[in-house]
Design a protein around this nucleic acid. Structure first.
Lengths: 208, 208
DNA sequence: GGCTGGTTCAAACGATCGTTTGAGCATACG
DNA sequence: CGTATGCTCAAACGATCGTTTGAACCAGCC
């Protein structure tokens, strides 16, 4: 309906910004290039000129944010991994906090919705793309979880990590009913969210 | 690609069956009425004749399964709610097992994918429809959780239930990496899944 | 038989989609 | 200056979408 013209940055950046918003709001198929280019204030043909196709644009939207998220998670993990006094809570914080931080920068919270949508769509090419850019991070965290939870069998550990992932995806994408109250600052709410996620995951991972 | 013609049941039922499969595979927008009617072996115009529109068909697909799921959950809850010796595990079982049972009947497992997709789509009309057909069930379970977890504040309880919901949705919709091994029977796998979900949720809900 | 109400059918409708085209414009370089 | 290069633009392309149409069919009933 409304057509807010974004007039800052290069054409390419304006397209990426508008794409992130519209993909989160209406999905990859639901957001048309005409809506997208109108919101970005650029010509329709600009998408195919700068990105080659709509599908390539989708991948670019992912890569830009996912690279940043992966880098921060691995950086946080590197500081604690393998140390003798590292706790499970530390590893969970290294996994969760970068995602929450990203959610509150720029249009980052919208990106988590985009990410959750990609999980829901069972599009194979997109899942393969996610696996390529995501797999090695999950593997490193899983290895660290395994070190700190030696009493769990491999299958038991996978199950629990899988369920933790579900809870995190659900919470961080804003699906749930929990919304920030108006009398709570964003920073306070983010910290509360982190505390809930970490303590919940801690209990789910380490119960006997 | 393949066009398996389903030739059993009435035209209406064949459409509903094919819709459940295709909506789960390609999403509500991704599955076209032409693919759908071809798979069902009926004429293209049959959808609008029997259901009025594609959107009405989507609602009908939901209602059929959701009514069954709600009925079983409430039935299971009614047997234990309010009793003095009821445990948290009993309530969780009443919530989780009907969904798992449904997943292994007919095309039920596909329906859980459809349900998860509906969560991902932020379509307001569909969310409102889900809230109407789902809200009272969640309210009854929440009341029972509150009774068995009196030490938790209301906000704390909502948070934990929200995260449990995320884990369940994730697991039951088949997003995760956990797949049934070929040497495990379906019944055994279902029981293992139930055990994992219940024990994980138990730990997440009741940790100090 | 004739008629009726419910159902199926092929065909077409208008709208919207992603993509392509070719002219137009601006800036940089010889 | 001329010309090459990178980018933007309006316009059109073919394809596919959900929906509508009107004829055809087919029971059951008078």
């Amino acid at each position: 309906m409304t057509l807010p013209v974004n007039s800052s940055g290069s054409t390419k950046d304006r397209i990426l910004g508008a794409a992130e918003v519209l993909f989160a709001q209406r999905g990859f198929d639901g957001a048309s290039l005409r809506q997208l280019t109108a919101a970005a204030g650029v010509n329709l043909a600009a998408v195919n000129y700068h990105f080659g196709s709509k599908e390539k644009l989708v991948e670019e939207v992912f890569r830009r944010r996912l690279d940043a998220l992966n880098a921060r998670r691995l950086e946080a993990l590197a500081k604690i991994a393998g140390l003798p006094n590292t706790t499970l809570e530390d590893v969970l914080a290294a996994y969760i906090r970068p995602a929450l931080d990203l959610s509150h920068e720029d249009n980052g919270s919208l990106f988590m919705r985009v990410l959750a949508r990609a999980f829901a769509e069972h599009d194979d090419t997109l899942r393969q793309f996610l696996s390529e850019h995501y797999g090695h991070v999950m593997r490193q965290f899983t290895a660290e979880f395994a070190r700190l939870l030696p009493q769990l069998s491999k299958s038991e550990l996978y199950w629990r990590i899988d369920l933790v992932t579900g809870a995190l995806t659900h919470a961080m994408s804003g699906f749930g009913m929990i919304q920030r109250k108006h009398d709570v600052s964003e920073q306070v709410h983010r910290e509360q969210t982190a505390q809930h996620l970490i303590r919940f995951s801690l209990a789910g991972l380490s119960h006997p």
